[in-house]
Design a binder for these strands. Structure first.
Lengths: 340, 340
DNA sequence: GACTGGCACTCTGTCCGCGGGAGTGCCAGA
DNA sequence: TCTGGCACTCCCGCGGACAGAGTGCCAGTC
C-alpha cells in the first residue's frame, strides 16, 4: 500500500505548519489547526507511516515531526495548490519595474523586486549572449594600435573588449573593418557566428587580413567561446531571517556558494522552456547548498528563453508562494523585453 | 596627567592579543606574552587608568580587558607599526592581477584579491565617471527613432544609454551628431561637460536642434547628473569567521548595509588623495555598521584619484595588516590603470 | 477493520545550586 | 613607584530536578 488521501493531507498540514512556525509539529497541534476530522491518535498512526516512508522525521524521540527533503518534494509535486498573486504583489511588480531605462536597470530592479517579494536571496542572469543575436558591432579607435570593440545585442546587452592590433590602423581601415563585420554578423545569433567569423578572414584581401584576423580571434575567444554570462544578486540579508536555525547553524557555506558566479549560473541557468524548476536540499548538486532550496525559471520575450532567474532560501520555504512569484516576475520581465 | 609610554605599550599589547585570541585579556597573560618588564600588579594599575580614560573596558567585573573603539583609534593613530607586505602577499597580488583583459576584469579581480588577502569583505568602486574624461562618444542606430549612446572614458569605462529621438533620424544626421558631440566633448572631464553640452545645442542649426536637444538632455541627466557609480563586492562569507561573536550576534544589519550601493559608496568614496581612512565602530555614520570597521583609500593612475576601494570587517581587526594590504592593492591597481 | 481515548514513557529545555578558575582591586611593604 | 599577597567577584560548566510536549501502544468502540 502507500499513501491514502488523508495521509497526504496530514503531510500537507505538517509542511504548511512547519514552514509557518519553524517548529516541529505534533499530532495535537495538527488537529487543532486543521480540520482533519480525526483524532490525534489517528494522526499519529498516519505520521508513523509517513515517517516510515521517509517523508517526515523526528528531530529526536518524542518531538514533533519535521518534513524531510522527500516530504517537501512530494508536497511540491502533488500537494501544491496554485496560489495566485495578491493584488498588492501585482501592484508591487508594476510599481517596481516601471520606468526602467536600460537592461542594467531592468536586471537590477528585477533582482531586488524578487528578493523583496519572496523575502529570500534572488538571482537574475543577464540575457545570455549565446542566445542573443548581434544587433551591431562598433569599432572605436582608442590609440593608433588599439580598438575598442563594442557589441550590442538584440536583448540590449552591450559588451566591449579592447583589441590590440598588430600594427597602426588608419581610420579608413577601421571603417572598412566595421562595415565588413557588420554586414556579415548583424542579425546573426551569437551561437551561429563562428563559421561566419572564419569566413570573414578568408574573404579578406591580404592587405587587411592581419587586422581582421586579430579582430576575429578576439571576437571568437571572448565573446563567443567564453560566452560571458553576467548576473545580479540581491537579498543576502534575508538569509538571516528565522534565526540561524535554517542552514544548520552556519551561513558560511551558503554565502560562499553565492560568491561563485559559476555556481549561481548552474543554479538558475537551466534552459527548459516555460517550466519552473525546484531543487530541494539534497537535490542540489552543490554540497554547500544541501540545506537550501532553489526555485528557478527561464525568462525571455515571447516563447524564447534568453536567461534564467530564481531565488534561494531554506528548504523550509513557502513553495507555493515562491513559485508563483518567481513565475510572475519572469513573465513580467519577458514582456518588458518583448517591448523592445 | 595622561598616558606614559608603558601604558601605551600595555594598550598595544591588549589590542594585539585581543585581535588574535578574540578573548578578553588579563594582566597575567599580558606579562607572560609580552616582555613588559613589570609585574601583573603594575599592569593592573595601568589598566585601571586606561579604563578610566575610556580606551579599554571589562565585559564584566573580573574578566579581562577588551579595547573600546577609542582604544582601537588610539592604537591605529599612534601605535601602529607599519607592517610590510610579505613576499607571499606581493606574489599573490601579481599573480592575481596578471592577464586582466579589461576594466570589468580588473575590478573583479581586485575585489576578490582584497577579500582573499584581508579575509574580510572587500569593496571596489569603478573609476568614477565624474573624475574621468570622455574618450569617445558613439551613436549607434537601433531603430529609426532610437539611438544607442555609448560613452568610452579614459579610465576604460563604457556606459551606454538608449535615446528615444523625437522623430526618425537618417544615417547622415547620426554621423553629423556624432561628429559634433565628439568634437566638443572628447578629452573633457565629465565634470566640466554641462556647459559644453548646453553650447552644443545652441550652436546647432535649427534643422537638427530637436535631435541634439534630446541627446543633450539625456547626456546631462544620466551620465553627468546621476553620475552613475558602480561597484563590486566580494568576501561576504568572511563575515562568518570567528563565530557570530563579532557584530554583536547578528550579521543582519551588516548584510543589509552591504546591499545598499549608496551606503557602500559613502564608505569608500572618500576623496582625499593618498590617505588611508580608517573608520572604527561608532565612527561610522551608518547605524548598521556600528560594530564594524572600514579601511578605505583612493586609487588612480599616478597622483590622481579616480575611485575608492576598501574592506569592511569587525572592529576587532588586524589594522596594521589590513591597512598595508589595502594600500598595496590600491597602488597596484593605480599602476595598472596608468599603463593604459 | 478503522478509529479513539487513555496511559506510560521518553526526551528536551530550563532552572537551580554549586564549585573551580580567572581576574581584579586594594593594601602594606620594599 | 613597583611588587607580592590576599580577599572578593563574577563567569562558566556541570549535574540534578522538573515541567511540558509528544509519542507508541493497547484495549475498547463503532
Amino acid at each position: 500500500m502507500s499513501l491514502d488521501d488523508r495521509k497526504l493531507e496530514v503531510l500537507r498540514a505538517i509542511v504548511e505548519d512547519y514552514v509557518e512556525t519553524q517548529e516541529p509539529v505534533g499530532s495535537k497541534a495538527l488537529v487543532d489547526r486543521h480540520k482533519l476530522g480525526v483524532s490525534p491518535a489517528t494522526v499519529r498512526n498516519d505520521m508513523a507511516v509517513l515517517e516510515e516512508e521517509g517523508y517526515i522525521r523526528q528531530p529526536h524521540t518524542s518531538a514533533g515531526r519535521v518534513p524531510t527533503d522527500a516530504g517537501y518534494r512530494l508536497f511540491v509535486d502533488r500537494l501544491t495548490r496554485i496560489k495566485p498573486l495578491s493584488p498588492a504583489e501585482r501592484r508591487a511588480i508594476e510599481r517596481f519595474m516601471i520606468g526602467a531605462v536600460d537592461l542594467d536597470d531592468v536586471v537590477h530592479r528585477t533582482v531586488r523586486l524578487l528578493a523583496q517579494l519572496t523575502r529570500q536571496v534572488a538571482v537574475v542572469q543577464y540575457p545570455s549572449l549565446s542566445r542573443s543575436a548581434v544587433r551591431h558591432l562598433e569599432l572605436v579607435p582608442i590609440s593608433t594600435t588599439r580598438l575598442m570593440l563594442v557589441m550590442i545585442t538584440d536583448t540590449g546587452r552591450v559588451e566591449q573588449r579592447l583589441v590590440e592590433m598588430p600594427g597602426p590602423v588608419p581610420d579608413r581601415d577601421v571603417w572598412d573593418l566595421r562595415r565588413r563585420v557588420n554586414e556579415k554578423l548583424a542579425g546573426q545569433r551569437l551561437a551561429d557566428t563562428p563559421p561566419l567569423v572564419a569566413a570573414l578572414v578568408d574573404e579578406c584581401e591580404p592587405a587587411s587580413r592581419a587586422a581582421m584576423a586579430c579582430l576575429a580571434s578576439l571576437l571568437l575567444e571572448t565573446l563567443v567561446e567564453r560566452s560571458e554570462e553576467r548576473l545580479a544578486l540581491a537579498g543576502t540579508a534575508n538569509l538571516t531571517r528565522g534565526g540561524v536555525l535554517d542552514f544548520q547553524g552556519t551561513l558560511r557555506p551558503v554565502l560562499e556558494a553565492l560568491e561563485e558566479e559559476v555556481i549561481l549560473l548552474k543554479l538558475i541557468g537551466d534552459l527548459e522552456p516555460r517550466t519552473t524548476r525546484v531543487r530541494i536540499g539534497d537535490e542540489n548538486e552543490i554540497d554547500n547548498l544541501r540545506s537550501a532550496s532553489v526555485v528557478s525559471t527561464g525568462y525571455g520575450p515571447g516563447a524564447t528563453i534568453v536567461g534564467g532567474l530564481g531565488v534561494l532560501g531554506p528548504t523550509r520555504m513557502d513553495y507555493p508562494g515562491t513559485i508563483a512569484t518567481v513565475r510572475a516576475v519572469a513573465r513580467y520581465v519577458g514582456d518588458l523585453l518583448a517591448q523592445n
